[in-house]
Amino acid sequence: MLLSRRLLWLAGCLLVILVGCAPRPPATDKEALQDYLETNDPLEPTNRKLYAVNEGFQDVVLRPLAVGYRHAVPEKVRDSVHNALANLTSPVMLGNEILQAKPRKAGNRLMRFIINSTLGVGGLFDVATSLGYPEETTDFGLTLATWGVGEGPFLFLPVIGPSDFRDGIGLGINAAMDPFTWLGQGSTVVYLELARYGMTAVDLYERNMDSLDSLKKSALDPYATLRSVYRQHRRSQVEDAKQDDPPTIPIWFPQPPQKTTQ
């Protein structure tokens, strides 16, 4: 009790030190003001500090782990680890597809989970993709977006990286929705959970390390570039989530022509 109160106090102090706001340009400077509104990053000074902390964490912890992982483990095995971790997120994604009112996608997800958990040996092999159920990802941030919630100001979260108010809330709810976090208590469960989160972080970083390196090498302001890339990518995901609603028609019924991008 005492410990948690102290922790709260410490967190409060940290927040006071960290929170700073970017000055809003005067209304007379219309173009600068428009830039400021488009960027929508009023917490920029705080976010930049968290970005610096995150960079340190990546350099000291994640990078050595990811580099070691890449050297020690063959690509095929790494793919299997990725598949197994992705398979564990299926229940949350299924929940989100139901909340987004996408019955066909939810059905596909269920099929993927069943096929990969059985034929794919506990998710190690992605058999479902070759059977016509390709991997797609979704989360509660996208669910909120399909309900009409705007992205809100930009946020840079330690360890997690670029985000925004909507996606930050989405992350919390996504974690709470995960049935694996409802499993009983006890040290074994805690260790398994920690191992899963740790492995997910290393897997994610290893897969994106090269792109991140090349972004940092070519950008004058890597923070601003990352912010722009995150925002654009997220908006395109939201657009896809809103538009992509495959029809639910029984297999024996005449099918409508498929929308193809080819």
Binding site: T39, L220, R227, Q232, Q237, D240
Partner: peptide
């Protein structure tokens, strides 16, 4: 536009922030 990310908008954000 690579997976929805525009190369020139990304570059402009970088220059503008600098």
């Amino acid at each position: 536009l690579v997976e929805g990310t525009s190369l020139r908008i990304t570059q402009r954000s970088d220059y503008s922030s600098f």
